[in-house]
Simulated scan of single mutants.
Amino acid sequence: MTTALKLTDLSKTFPVGKRLFGPAKGMVRAVQPLSLSVEEGETLGIVGESGCGKSTLARMLVGLLPPSTGTIEINGAPLDAADPALFGRKIQYVFQDPISSLNPRKTIRQIMEAPLKHLHGMSAAERDARIREIFAAVNLREEFLDRYPHEFSGGQAQRIGIARALAADARILILDEPVSALDVSVQAQVLNLLADLKQKFGLTYLFISHDLAVVEAVSDRVAVLYFGAVVEVGPAEQIFAQPKHPYTKLLADSAPVVGRALVAPEGRETELPDPLNPPPGCAFSARCPYASAECRQAPPPLEQQSDGVWAACYHPLSETA
């Protein structure tokens, strides 16, 4: 298979407590150096708690944030962070809030024309033909083109957001919580649409979500992030059925299930790592029932545990269960 997206030692660090003169008071590493690859036509799900670095990673991939270290390659070619147009032609972002991601002062036609003008330099006739093609693909009527974003429901606005991403002719889409703001019935429609578009246009998806059921249903593989680092990655059907990392099991046990009482898998006194003073070893050790002295000394490497499953854990669950 051909690798569509390859990340090598990609990280992001933010200064905190800036002074008027002199260096910042501290630095927070939102994304630890990570390496991932996504094959053409694959959907890689990315899951983790709030603050684990999912959205920061997504913004680096589309050029909204420059990485502190590492490289991004698409189809074997490195992306230049200084050229935002190159990002736009290769990879596009579908935002979580469909309404606020659309310019309220522009009609849908003007919004759709922007990438066709600035990224591809199309003529008016070419733009019109391309917009009609894309609108047909996302099941939207052409009469919507002369309306404004506030005139649409959340589901319609998200279809417009997807259409705008497709207009750039990118083959990789970053889907950041694309259905979390929608009603459940509309969620199913949008997910089915994404599946159809993936097949029709040969797309590759990075699907970021808190909803583990949705991620498992739409993803080929899943990467689990904790404290900015990948702690487990593998086929979707294995990650949640037989997790190797205790954090992955915690996520699966925390997900609500119809007919099952909501029980917190952890106590209220659970301590999360301090981003300004990260622990020297495994960041999850304070919350892990299997943690040992080794876990508190050095972070575990990401190692293969079984066919297709990699986990960063000194005591994977297959050994401790």
Rank of each mutant, 00 (worst) to 15 (best):
T2I: 06
K6Y: 02
D9P: 00
R19C: 00
G26R: 09
Q32G: 04
L34M: 15
S35F: 10
L36T: 09
I46F: 05
G48A: 07
K54E: 07
T71A: 14
I72P: 05
I74P: 00
R89D: 03
I91C: 01
S101N: 06
I108T: 02
A114G: 04
P115M: 06
L116W: 04
L119V: 03
H120D: 05
M122V: 09
S123I: 13
R127L: 08
E133R: 12
R141T: 12
D146Q: 12
H150I: 07
H150T: 04
H150R: 13
A157H: 06
A163V: 03
V190H: 02
L191F: 06
A195P: 00
K198E: 04
Q199T: 14
D220G: 07
V222F: 05
A223Y: 08
Q238S: 15
Q238V: 09
K244C: 11
S254C: 05
G259D: 08
R268N: 13
C282H: 06
A283I: 03
R287Q: 11
E303I: 15
Q304G: 12
Q305G: 10
V309C: 10
W310P: 08
A311W: 13
A311K: 13
A312T: 12
H315F: 15
P316D: 12
S318E: 13
T320I: 13
